[in-house]
Each structure stands twice: as C-alpha cells, then as structure tokens.
Design a binder for these strands. Structure first.
Lengths: 258, 258
DNA sequence: AACTGTGAAGATCTTCACAGCA
DNA sequence: TGCTGTGAAGATCTTCACAGTT
C-alpha cells in the first residue's frame, strides 16, 4: 500500500525490496532481545526462528544490506542492530504528532514503545476545545487550529491520524500542506495524498474480516474434508510469517477518537 | 504472515488469493458507502478509485469470486455487498474476546465499528483482579482465571490479544487450547501457534519504523537528486494501494495494556 | 459504446540448493 | 565443518490489453 510507491525509476543500487524493509523491524526486535541477553552472535537459523521467518529469507534480506555476517559463524548481534537501525533511519530522532486524542489516540500517546526507538511524541492535537491544555500521557493536548504551527515549529515529518473517519482526509491534507510526508492512518478511510507522501494504514476492522474469512473456510473444511481421517498436524509451529498481506479497514476507525 | 498459511494442498477451486482476500474488506467498505447513498451500480473504475486500487486489479479480484458484474454496465452495489459479505463470512455473527484491558484493550472495546459488521465483543478479560467486574464499554471485565470457560461458553473462535508482550504467548496458548483458531495480536511478539490457527499482528512500532525508512530515503534523495531540476509530480493521487506490505512490530505493544 | 472478465506478460517475493569463505 | 551469500527456480501478485457481452 501507499508505501511501496516507486517515485522515480526505483533506484537500482539502494533498492531494498519493500517486503524486506517490512521485515527489518522484526529482525531488529529479535536482535535487541538477544543484545539485552548479551548474546554475541546468532546464526541465520536462530535469528530467523526468533523473528518467525525462514532462514533463507532472512539471509536474502540481509544480503540487500550488505555482507554483515561471517561464514561459519553467524552475525554479530551488536553490529547488526546498528546496521539495521541505521538502514531504518532510527539513529536519528523522529518527532511525531498524533491527531485525534480520543480513546485510541490517548492509548497511542501512552504507548511506551514510542520513545524507545527513535520516535518522540512531539505533540498531541485534537479538535475538541475542551481537550486543549489537558495533559494526556504527560503531554498537553493542543487545538487543531495550531496544527500548522506545531508541525513547523517541531519539524515534524511523521503524523499519526487517529481521528474519526470523517475528519481524516481533512486532517491529512493539512498535515501534508504543513510539511508532513509520512502518515500512519488509523481511521478507516482511503487517504488521498500527493506523490511523495507515504501512507500506511492500520485497521482493526479489516484484520478481523480477514480472520473471519479464514475462520469460515476452516468451518467448511471440517465438514467437507470430514474430520477424523488424517488428524492433521497439531504440533506448535512458528506462526508469524511476515504479514505481507495486512490490509486496511472496512468500517469505523479503530475506536472512535475525539 | 501467519494468515496465508496453506494448510493442506491449498485448494485449487476455492482458491482466492490471499492478496485478494486482504482487499475484499476495502471493497466492502466502499460499497457500503455507496449503498448508503443509494447508488445502484458502479463501474470497476469508480469503485477502484473509491477503494484506492487500480481497476484491473479490482476486476481480477472480483473474477475470483465469480462473474458478478454486467458488461457495459458495471456491478450492482447491493448484490456485490452481499456476495463479498458472504465470502468474508460476515453474514454470520462472530463472538470475539479481548484479552488485556489496558489503554489499548479499552480503546478496542469501545471501538464502534466492532459490532457494525459481524463481530460482537463477547467478553473482556484481564489479569488484574482489581479490574474484575468493572465495566468497560458497558461490558464487565472478567478475570483471566475464567478464560477457558468464557471461550467455551460463548463459542468464541476469534481472540484479540492486547496484553503486554510478556504475557502474549501464554495468553495465546490458553486461547488456542480453549478452542480459539484465529488471533489478532497487538502485542509486539512473534506468537507460536499450532498449525491451523491464524494469527495476524498489528503493530504501531513496526509501521512507524517502515515510515522512518522511507522518510530517511526521501531526505537523502533531496540532496542527491538535487531538488530544483524536475519539480516532480505534486498532483494529489490516491495513495492507499493495498497494504500488501504491512508488518508486525518491533518493540513494546501498542500501548501497555494491563 | 461502455464496461466486464481474463489470458498473458511483467514484476515481486519466496524458497531451494549449493558454491565459497572462515 | 558450519554457516553465509546468492544464482536460479518457483510461486504470487500486478498490470496490460483486448476479446466478449450487454
């Protein structure tokens, strides 16, 4: 979605596949955990298991970043953490604004992992005058009227939209006009943005619908395949593949923000 | 991720591509909006624009469901809404439990769109004894001790995990053991599940990291490509493609649920 | 004339399998 | 010997372009 947009001929050299980029955060998390346990090196097999992907895929992914491993040994954990962080642009600080401080917006503001890795909540913005000044997660909520000024003053380039669907496009337009070039959209709307602006969407409704689809199919198979014959595998296996399919929503925004 | 899992030889006939399934909710939402405006028919071109995808893709997607359109005319909105709903399994009611009623869990419980389309919050579960009995979104929170009973009594097959990362796998195991076969995971953990159980993950941290990657690249291009020559397109264009890349997280769960 | 449905080409992504280095 | 890095095969997904239908 919106992300993989190839503005320009899609650079050949710096060309890290979008699917790979989407997995780098996973690897980074697994590596961070290893780092905290002071594990010095990991093999592609071990790391792949921790990240829930297959080892060939992981090696191929890393090959796009360069040759950071050592044959016969594996990868140096600290070194990889640094390289991936750098590649993802996490060695710098990204000020983020959250627009729409309702249930979800407040939950996001309280999200601990935010600050943990390169991101900092620079401001909370809401259209409700009654919210203005009220602190959420220790940060005073500001009114939408000042959106442009806030974006500019803080040099914000990443915005999170957690408003109701109806307000999303308008908020998006203002964010973009003010200089934001990356948007994480929690409202169940398809946002229109100029070329060069990336949009990613997160939607509870869509996810549930996709699960329902598979759930329904399972129910059907039971009857058709006749359960009983071929007990089917039940041994625990790593599930998380690489979510190459997630999709946006379908109805109302995840929680009705202010 | 976990979803596209092809248990069994991957049925040939009923084989709707995973990428298509992920887009059906998008189409459904666009169609529902048209239906509310009493629009009788739409062309693939119009619907595609509303859903933020390209029309050829939409037509191909629909072709997997059957031939529901009329050449020279388009698609009957009501009919398509029904067909897609049926395909997604939304013509039946899916009881859902949310485990971990912290900031995020509460926000999810309050999510209006939940009930709107086939889903019903059957129960809220939290490990904090102090939460027990307290109503959230009008539903009394129940203690984790009763998890199995709740799942069985309500015939729940879809569970939402909004606990801290540390508790996720354990909760997942219990949900699965009690009969849940589809899980929506908001905790930043790779869940291990038996074959046949679908897991989808939603992670704020991952999404932001992916945006940061592209954001960083944009900054680099500016300098390299030398802005000035070739002003580049700036005309608003539909952004939302089809989120075929979303990924799971990387650090802490979206908001620290109880 | 307008628009769907789809074979075929193209682009991406995944997985295999093994050469090559430590 | 152990494990990475990667060409090549395979699987999916996307887009084209046009035949077919109303």
């Amino acid at each position: 979605m919106a992300t993989g947009r190839t503005h320009r001929p899609a650079t050949r050299s710096r060309g890290i596949p979008e699917a790979t980029v989407a997995r780098l955060p996973l690897y980074l998390r697994a590596l961070t955990a290893l780092s905290e346990r002071s594990v010095p090196t990991v093999s592609s097999e071990e790391l792949a298991a921790a990240a829930g992907v297959n080892s060939a895929k992981l090696r191929k992914d890393f090959s796009y970043l360069g040759s950071y491993g050592t044959r016969g040994v594996g990868y140096d954990v600290e070194y990889l953490v640094y390289q991936i962080s750098r590649e993802l642009g996490l060695t710098q600080d990204w000020p983020v604004v959250i627009v729409g401080i309702g249930n979800l917006g407040a939950a996001l503001a309280n999200y601990g992992g935010f600050a943990s890795r390169g991101f900092r909540v620079a401001a909370l913005i809401d259209a409700d005058p009654a919210m203005a000044g009220k602190p959420v997660a220790g940060i005073p909520v500001q009114h939408t009227d000042d959106l442009e000024k806030i974006i500019e003053d803080n040099g914000v380039s990443i915005g999170v939209i957690a408003t109701p669907a109806g307000a999303a496009q308008q908020v998006c337009d203002r964010l973009v006009a003010a200089g934001v070039t990356s948007i994480l959209n929690f409202a169940p709307t398809v946002l229109s943005v100029p070329d060069g602006v990336d949009v990613r969407k997160v939607d509870l409704s869509i996810e549930l619908q996709i699960l329902a689809f598979h759930e329904q199919r399972k129910a059907g198979e039971e009857t058709a395949a006749g359960d009983g014959a071929l007990p089917a595998a039940t041994a625990p296996a790593v599930a998380a593949d690489d979510s190459t399919d997630q999709g946006p929503d379908g109805d109302v925004p995840a929680v009705m923000p202010a």
